[in-house]
């Protein structure tokens, strides 16, 4: 980053503001955003840490209706809760498999990156899955997998595979839900890559062509490195999406079958705090804190890589 403070251009007789303009301006620009963010995000997060130390059903106020229990919620969650372990493993599956949306999105983006008639409309239609309500996406896939009436078993039957009940199987259900989630997420990544492809340097591509690079070699050695920024954003939004996901789970399996087969932490937290039978705000807050700590790993990685880039840019 270029430095700004060294530029010494002001005249000697200026007002205090003018003299300190460069030091003050950023804060003036930051204040509204930071204020809003502090009130609505930072403070509630601190509150959540606090709530996680109480036994509270979320009714009334924390002061009147809650009982302080120290770290009991964490103790139960980490050592005596079988669902937590399942949810954690499922979260890992989500994290890994959801990343498939990135190459899938790239492939579709490459396919669509042409300038034929009506391509804008096609691009919009390919974007559609991302904007339609997740509730409906979940319903469609549920019916698609339906063992009696669904299309899925018919399709795999063509290849001689025995019918399976994906969402009813404790080992397969999570994969079924993730597959449904990949559809809108792929659309999202596709859009990011479409924009990335737009920025690919045509001269470099031409130069590579002259050197005889073609097809996947061109893609791998010339295009993908240039798409790094788009990949980075796609990676970030996909990780966030994977860790937050619960709309689909709630529609397709409700965390089940058998109470936990498709559970992930964000859904488990929701179930405990707001679910029909969950009135355990303190416990849910503890889950959230743990989830937050897991996310900190990603945030840490994210920040570290960003910091490295910043440092590299300075030299």
């Amino acid at each position: 980053m270029a430095t700004t403070t060294s530029s010494d251009h002001h005249l000697p007789k200026q007002g205090w503001y003018k003299r300190n303009e460069i030091a003050i301006t950023p804060w003036l620009f930051l204040i509204p955003g930071m204020l809003m963010f502090a009130i609505y995000v930072i403070y509630p997060i601190i509150q959540s840490f606090n709530i996680s130390l109480y036994k509270w059903n979320g009714l009334g106020t924390l002061a009147d209706n809650a009982k302080y229990v120290g770290l009991a919620n964490y103790e139960k969650l980490l050592f005596r809760d079988g669902k937590f372990e399942t949810a954690l493993i499922n979260n890992l599956k989500w994290l890994i498999l959801y990343l498939l949306a990135i190459p899938a999105g790239l492939l579709i983006a490459i396919f669509l990156n042409q300038t034929v008639r009506g391509i804008r409309l096609y691009k919009s239609m390919f974007f559609f899955p991302f904007v339609i309500s997740q509730v409906v996406v979940g319903l469609v896939f549920t019916w698609f997998y339906d063992p009696q009436y669904g299309l899925f078993n018919g399709i795999i039957g063509i290849f001689g595979i025995e019918p399976v009940n994906i969402l009813g199987d404790r080992n397969l259900a999570t994969y079924g839900v993730i597959a449904a989630g990949l559809w809108p997420q792929t659309a999202y990544c596709m859009i990011l890559y479409l924009t990335g492809l737009n920025a690919v340097d045509p001269e470099q591509v031409e130069a590579a062509r002259l050197d005889g690079a073609k097809g996947h070699k061109m893609l791998w050695y010339v295009i993908i490195p240039q798409l790094k920024p788009a990949t980075f954003i796609a990676f970030v939004v996909t990780i966030i999406g994977a860790l937050r996901s619960f709309d689909l789970i709630s529609v397709m399996t409700n965390g089940g079958p058998f109470g936990k087969s498709t559970l992930v932490l964000s859904f488990y937290m929701y179930e405990k705090a707001l679910g029909e039978f969950g009135l355990k705000m303190g416990y849910a807050a503890a889950i959230a804190v743990v989830l937050f700590l897991i996310m900190l790993v990603f945030i840490g990685y994210f920040l570290w890589s960003m910091y490295q880039d910043e440092k590299a840019a300075k030299h």
Binding site: S48, I240, L243, R244, A285, F292, M295, L296
Partner: peptide
């Protein structure tokens, strides 16, 4: 700002509701 972006937003519910 980034960290806030990563939080499981469901947990903000009660404080934000009260606010």
């Amino acid at each position: 700002f980034i960290a806030g972006n990563f939080i499981p937003f469901q947990i903000l519910m009660v404080p934000v509701r009260d606010l």
